[in-house]
């Protein structure tokens, strides 16, 4: 039993999609609970991937393969989660800040969030603060995630936060990310969290929703 968990863990870390799928299928066939597979192998595997990425030991292609393996595993697990656990861990509306067309980072975060089981609504680039907030209301999203590369465009992140407050949406959390974003800026505009990189962003979204 421990072997199959280890096997899934390794397949996700190494980004082997088919191996991950077949090992998860074997685990389910042998009677393991979906929650156990998720908690004991998938989540810790993606944590290691995130750590290696943060250390500069691996790069985006490897992370994407691992995310794909994770996604394939999740597809198999989803129908088996116990009813106490919701099938979707949360819903995130994501896009780049008004005026900003740099979407590499945003795309990555979207992929990683999906890999972690979130439902992601991607609004694309150059999104008005109203666009984020209206979509979040319409979709009953838990989180708005805004990305910016430029100091000139990051200012509109504050408008997103203000608008969420104005509309009185205490259940909607705002997370920001991108090269110029730091803790001081996050605090200044009153966002709920910021991500240093894609993996950290996913981690922070999880933290926000577990509060």
């Amino acid at each position: 039993m421990a072997d199959i968990i280890k096997q899934i863990y390794n397949a996700v870390v190494e980004g082997k999609v088919e191996e991950a799928s077949s090992a998860v299928q074997d685990a389910l066939n042998s009677g393991l609970e979906a929650d156990e597979i998720l908690n004991k192998s998938l989540i810790s595997a993606m944590d290691l991937v995130g750590q290696r990425f943060g250390e500069g030991e691996i790069f985006i292609p490897q992370v994407l393969w691992s995310a794909k393996a994770m996604q394939a595993a999740m597809d198999l697990l989803k129908p088996h989660f116990t009813s106490s656990r919701s099938k979707d861990v949360g819903k995130v509306v994501i896009g780049t800040a008004r005026g900003d067309i740099h979407d590499i980072g945003k795309n990555l975060v979207a992929i990683m969030l999906e890999g972690a089981g979130f439902q992601v609504i991607d609004l694309g680039v150059d999104v008005e603060p109203e666009g984020f907030v209206e979509k979040a209301i319409e979709e009953k999203a838990d989180v708005i995630a805004v990305s910016a590369l430029l100091t000139t465009t990051m200012q509109s992140m504050g408008d997103v936060v203000s608008l969420v407050k104005e509309r009185n949406l205490p259940s909607v959390k705002v997370i920001i990310g991108g090269a110029p974003v730091d803790g001081a800026f996050c605090e200044e505009i009153g966002a709920d969290a910021y991500g240093i990189d894609a993996m950290d962003g996913v981690r922070k979204v999880k933290e926000l929703l577990s509060r």
């Binding site: 100091t151 000139t152 090269a179 730091d182 803790g183 001081a184 800026f185």
Partner: peptide, 13 residues
């Protein structure tokens, strides 16, 4: 327009 962080705060153009 890349920011510089001075003693942990302020970004500037």
């Amino acid at each position: 327009g890349q920011p510089k962080t001075r003693s942990g705060i302020t970004t500037y153009k």
